[in-house]
């Protein structure tokens, strides 16, 4: 999931101060799990805005804010409420926020959250990064643990000299990714994989902005024929 946290109060306030009326959009996927775009978060935002003398013209919880088409359909019936607001507050990740930007070309959109990383909720609202979306997964060679993400240097061929008793030189809070990989490879009987040199990554695969079409279009199929 995409991990978000609410923007620093001062910074958010500065954006909100510019307008008098708002329409609030949350997201029932990741931002709900993070508590940054949940029903509760929407309610809190509505109350705070009202308490500071602002108007809230409506509140909506789309199913998946980053699903542009679906959100567009869902928001159709909210047209008037959205029109009557000076600005939209998007309480989702950066992608969900830009759905609102795309759907309402003439309406300012205030993002309420900072988008941090792709990770897992390991305990209730405790999140750890798991994937850097580098575009070329290497964890088939590293026992399923991603060194690109879990090692602050993204090392591909073993621990650096900064490892101390299994901990990272950057912070003793971080377990060395390569000691973890070593232990897991040993446990699953695939330690010999650690003997193979992993070549330098092709970072062009990480280079955005990305676009991707998962399903072949009719035209694609015809061209192939």
């Amino acid at each position: 999931m995409i991990i978000t946290k609410q923007k620093e109060k001062d910074k958010l306030q500065k954006c909100l101060d510019k307008y008098n009326s708002f329409y609030l959009v949350g997201c029932s996927e990741c931002a709900s799990l993070c508590g940054t775009g949940s029903e509760e978060a929407l309610k809190k935002m509505e109350e705070e805005l009202k308490a500071s003398g602002k108007t809230v013209t409506g509140v909506f919880m789309p199913k998946t804010a980053c699903q542009t088409l679906g959100t567009k359909v869902e928001l159709k019936k909210e047209k008037d409420k959205i029109e009557s607001a000076e600005a939209i507050v998007a309480m989702s990740c950066g992608a969900g926020t830009q759905t609102a930007v795309e759907l309402y070309p003439n309406k300012p959109v205030v993002p309420s959250n900072d988008t941090m990383f792709l990770g897992n909720m390991t305990r209730f609202q405790m999140f750890d990064e798991r994937c850097s979306m580098c575009g070329e997964c290497v964890i088939d060679q590293t026992g399923g643990i991603c060194p690109v993400t879990n090692c602050p240097k993204g090392l591909l061929n073993g621990p650096c000299g900064g490892m101390k008793d299994g901990k990272c030189e950057v912070s003793a809070e971080i377990n060395c990714a390569w000691v973890r990989i070593y232990e897991r490879q040993k446990n699953i009987g695939e330690l010999s994989q650690m003997e193979e040199i992993i070549p330098a990554k092709d970072w062009s695969k990480k280079q955005g902005p990305h676009s991707y079409v998962a399903k072949e279009t009719k035209k694609d199929k015809e061209t192939k024929k």
């Binding site: 602050p152 240097k153 993204g154 090392l155 591909l156 061929n157 073993g158 650096c160 900064g162 030189e169 950057v170 912070s171 040199i197 070549p199 330098a200 970072w203």
Partner: peptide, 22 residues
């Protein structure tokens, strides 16, 4: 190379495009 966090330019972007073996 020691991580940027050890040094005196802590806001620097660490590169590590390749590493020692590579």
């Amino acid at each position: 190379g020691d991580h940027v966090s050890a040094g005196d330019q802590k806001g620097a972007k660490p590169v590590y495009d390749v590493e020692s073996v590579q």
